[in-house]
Every structure is written in C-alpha cells, then in structure tokens.
C-alpha cells in the first residue's frame, strides 16, 4: 500500500473503481460544494476536484478537497502546472497531505489563453510528468526536489491523465509509459467517445505490460444534449466524438436527449468494462452531478465496495 487511500484500496482489493468529479464554484460558496458532493456521496470511490479547469478562476482545489474530507468524502486533488512553480507545488502538496488529502492527479493544465484571465502570466516551471516525479520523490524518498529531508512524508496515491485521442496517436502509449515511469499509480483518461480507437490504445498498452504497472480508468462524460456533443466534437481540442453519437442524439426528441445521453454513457461504461486492462471509470458529469447516481445504478456499479 503506497498511500492507503480508499481509491487505492478499491484497486488493490480487485474492485472496478469509480471516481467522480466536482468543479469548485466561481465564488466562495460552501453550499454549492455541499450540494454537488451530496450527489456523489456513497456512489463513487473518490472525487476529483478540478484545479481552475479551463483556466477559469474557481475556489482553490486544496480548499475544496479539505471541505470534502470534513464531509467524510475522499477527494482526489487535481494539480496543474500552469499556476505554480516547484516551490508552490511542493508547499501545496505538503499542506494538502496535512489536511488529510491522499490522492493527487498531476496535470499540465489548460492554457491560460482559454480562460477568464487570458492576460495572466503562466508558470509551467515543470510539466505534468515532472510533477508526477516530484510527488513520487516526496513520497518514496522523503525528500524535496532540493534534496532537503522532509519533516513528515506525504504518502500520496499518484494519478495522471492520458488522452488516447491526442495526436500523434502512435506516441500516446509511449507517453503513458513515461508517466508510469515517472511514478503514476493510476491513470484517468480523457473522455472516451471513439471506442474503437480506445480499444486499439488499450490493446497496445496491455501488450506492453503497462496495464499491470498502473490502474487505468476510462474517462466517461455523459452527453447532455446534441448541442453539447457538437461542442465537444468541434471545440474541445484532442476530443474525438464520432458522428454516430451526434446522430443518435439528433434522432430523439429534444426532451428525450438527456435520457438518450445517459443511455449512451451506460453503454460506454459497459463497453469499457470489457476492455482488458481497464480497472475503473472516471465519470465526469460536467454540471450534471445529480445524474451520477442514476448513471452508475443503471451501469450496475452500485453499491460501491466498502474497503478497509
């Protein structure tokens, strides 16, 4: 056991894991977090808390993680390289551990040009892979990047993201291998819609033995409407939404599109469960947290295992 988080235990005890996602509010409201967390309570093994996603200023992910800990829920702290240098990263990681946070997901971060403060200066002192190695060094060597011995070692379960649909496809599995080398214990993938391409990706990863070295969770984002599907297809870089889903959503009455979206998500979950090496799903129900229990129930993933 590397960190002893609930998520790690679910994996090590051989269960198919489920993580959810909570986007902090654009303000200081605790109520918003309590409401969203309420939908996820008891239905996921850990909750990702996004770190100023799409470069839009939101409540600190560390703070929201702490609020979840206080609510008896397990957070997965997302940390991006855009806004912090190695000093701030290590400092925040130590603080996060002290607050009871046990999982951390290391990301590059969306570029600040996309967000609500495009005039900002970005950092990118280290990249996501190097951030993984920092968390690992803290945990496994008990040392800072400087070599300074730690007074108290943060034992994090280390996560990383992978996008099987980014280009060049041929290099994507290599990049996954690099993240595992750097120290990733688990991987959450980008939202999967092109199942064929994902199967191909997982096949290569499986053949190379990578699925034995870390827990790979397939990213699922339910499509709320045909509009959302079109947006994901056309405006989110590195996302691959086949026309098949757009046509399916287009084919039903507007009022029924949400139901169809849920149906698609459930089918996708069932499909990824069949793929060798997939050890869980990461359900990113963007501003649709209240539908998470329904989706997981329909996918046969409830109740969640209780692990010790």
């Amino acid at each position: 056991m590397k960190a002893g988080s609930n998520l790690e235990k679910v994996f090590t005890q051989g269960h198919f894991a489920v993580t959810g996602e909570l986007g902090p509010p654009r303000g200081a409201s605790v109520e918003v977090i309590e409401k969203k967390a309420g939908y996820l309570r008891g239905v996921v093994d850990s909750i990702n808390v996004t770190d100023n996603q799409t470069s839009v200023v939101r409540m600190s992910s560390v703070a929201v993680c702490k609020l979840l800990v206080d609510m008896g829920l397990e957070p997965n702290l997302q940390m991006v390289c855009r806004d912090r240098n190695r000093i701030a990263m290590q400092s925040d990681l130590l603080g996060a551990y002290a607050l009871g946070i046990r999982n951390v997901l290391c990301l590059s971060g969306d570029h600040n040009r996309f967000g609500d403060h495009p005039q900002s200066k970005n950092v990118f002192d280290v990249d996501s892979m190097q951030l993984i190695s920092i968390v690992k060094k803290l945990r496994d060597e008990g040392k800072m990047l400087s070599g300074q011995e730690l007074e108290g070692v943060p034992k994090f379960f280390i996560g990383a993201a992978a996008n099987p649909f980014g280009d060049p496809f041929e290099f994507r599995v290599t990049r996954l291998a690099k993240k595992i080398d750097a120290g990733a214990d688990f991987i959450q993938t980008q939202c999967i819609y092109n199942m064929e391409k994902f199967r191909k990706y997982m096949h290569i990863a499986h053949e190379e033995g990578l699925t034995e070295k870390c827990y790979i969770m397939a990213g699922i984002t339910p499509l709320k409407s045909v509009g959302m599907a079109r947006y994901m297809a056309n405006f989110v870089p590195g996302l691959d939404v086949p026309d098949y889903y757009i046509n399916r959503l287009k084919g039903v009455d507007k009022k029924k599109q949400a139901d169809e979206g849920i149906k698609i998500a459930v089918e996708q979950i069932q499909e990824v469960r069949e793929i060798p090496g997939v050890k869980g799903i990461h359900l990113m129900a963007i501003e649709w947290e209240h539908k998470v229990p329904e989706i997981l129930q329909a996918a046969g993933l409830l109740p969640r295992p209780s692990v010790n």
Partner: peptide
C-alpha cells in the same frame, strides 16, 4: 510549445 513542455505533446495536440 505553448506550455513549454519537456515531455509533450499534451492532450490538446490535434492535427499537428
């Protein structure tokens, strides 16, 4: 690289 990545490409790379 917009993010000065030393271990790229990031997930946002599409069609070069």
């Amino acid at each position: 690289c917009s993010k000065s990545l030393m271990n790229g490409p990031c997930g946002g790379s599409a069609n070069k």
